[in-house]
Every structure is written in C-alpha cells, then in structure tokens.
Simulated assay, not measured.
Amino acid sequence: MPEISAPAPDFTLPVTGGQTVTLSALQGTPVVLFFYPRDDTPGCTKESIGFSEHLDAFKAAGAAVYGISRDTMAKHDKFAAKHNLTVPLLSDEEGKVTEDYGVWVEKNMYGKKSMGIERATYLIDAAGNIAQIWRKVKVPGHVEEVLDAVLTL
C-alpha cells in the first residue's frame, strides 16, 4: 500500500470519452484519484456528483480529478450519462490499480465477508508523489476537504 511522500503507482486505464489516461503523463499537474465501490449506488453517486459539481474549482486550482472503480466502461458511460457526470471515470476491470493502491480489501456487510473497493481518495502532487490519503471516506464534506488540500499544495 502506497504511503504519503512515496511515488504514486503508475497506470494506464481507459476513461469515459473513449481515451486512456496514463498517470505518469500527468506529471506537472496535481491529480486527485477517488476510488469508489460501484457505479450507481447511493454513496458512489453522491460522491461522483460532488466531484462533478466542483470540477471547475479543481481545474482552476490546476488539478485533474478521476474516479476509479472496477466497473466496465459501458457501465461508466451509462452512469455518467444518467447523472450528468463531468468528472472522468477510469475503469480498472482487471483490478491491478485498486490492488496497487491498497483499496481492494475484505469487507464485512451484515456478517458476510467479501472483497471490494474501500472508498478512498489519493492526492498526488505535481511531482507524482502521494501528498495525502483519505481512507474509509464518508461522502458528506469530502469533496470540499479534498479541494482545500489541493489549494494548499
């Protein structure tokens, strides 16, 4: 699991809109990666809408923002269209990135254990190092907290 000040694990993933994103190609720009469990669930929808609503403020601060889950691109495209999301969504179908970032964890829901994505956010500085990590994120107020952290970089 990456730690603060460590280089962020590099990746190339497909993104909504039909392109791909390579993290190392974004060097020189702060990057926010928010990992979420699944498209179109209540918490994930609220979080994605929140980042979309604040996307212009992140851009004004010079930062790029991406949501990541293991959903397919088809599901991402449907999710983005349904909720008018403007934040780009990356598909980690094979799970390598969620594992590299330590967010693929055992969960316990109503006594049943299963593997899934822990809601987490990574702020990566312009040099490509991890500046801040939020684990077990609670959605209310989170987007604003991340934006404040970007503004203090």
Rank of each mutant, 00 (worst) to 15 (best):
S48T: 10
Y66E: 08
P30C: 12
L23K: 11
E99I: 03
P37E: 09
K75G: 08
G28S: 12
C44L: 11
V105T: 07
T41E: 13
L26C: 15
E94P: 01
C44H: 06
T29N: 14
K82F: 00
G28E: 06
S91N: 07
K46R: 15
M109W: 12
K112R: 15
R70H: 05
H76A: 12
G43A: 13
E99Q: 05
S48F: 06
E93K: 00
I49R: 08
E99W: 00
R70N: 08
D40V: 11
L90D: 08
L90R: 03
I68L: 09
Q19H: 14
F34N: 03
D92L: 00
A61C: 06
V97N: 05
E47Q: 14
W104A: 03
Y36T: 00
M109L: 14
I68N: 02
E93T: 12
K59Y: 01
A57Q: 14
P30K: 08
P37S: 07
N108E: 14
L90W: 03
T72F: 04
F79M: 10
G50N: 08
Y36D: 09
F35H: 05
T29L: 13
P37H: 03
Q27P: 01
D71V: 02
T29K: 15
F79C: 09
D40G: 06
D56G: 10
Q27H: 14
K78M: 07
E99R: 08
V105Q: 09
G111K: 12
D56I: 02
G67W: 03
L85I: 02
V105K: 07
M109T: 15
L85F: 12
L26H: 11
